[in-house]
């Protein structure tokens, strides 16, 4: 059981949250894309979730909380004010 991800994400700008999509677990239901308040995410023609505008992410974590498949991860940037929150234990 491993969460794997494709490197389809655009590079994350400094001090912005890092968003990872675990494409092996994602079932392309579109909930994260539909309820993102800042339109950070988009669905491609192949029904894959794309992190379209990582610089707009405000780390509200609504995509994480609503994802039924545990397939999206939002980590605050290591140099940001909330750097400890996203660290793996």
């Amino acid at each position: 059981m491993t969460q794997t991800s494709k490197t389809q994400n655009l590079p994350t700008p400094n001090n912005h949250p890092r968003i990872t999509i675990f494409s092996d677990w994602c079932k392309s239901c579109g909930i994260c894309v539909a309820f993102c308040p800042k339109e950070v995410l988009a669905m491609t023609a192949d029904h894959e979730v794309l992190v379209k505008a990582p610089e707009k992410c405000i780390a509200c974590h609504m995509c994480e909380l609503r994802c039924p498949d545990f397939a999206i991860n939002v980590e605050e940037h290591a140099t940001g004010p909330d750097s400890q929150k996203g660290e793996l234990q």
Binding site: M1, D24, K27, R66, P68
Partner: peptide, 15 residues
Amino acid sequence: KKFPHIWCPGCGIGT
């Protein structure tokens, strides 16, 4: 356990 889980795409049980 095998993942992804058995629930359908978009099902609220995972949430």
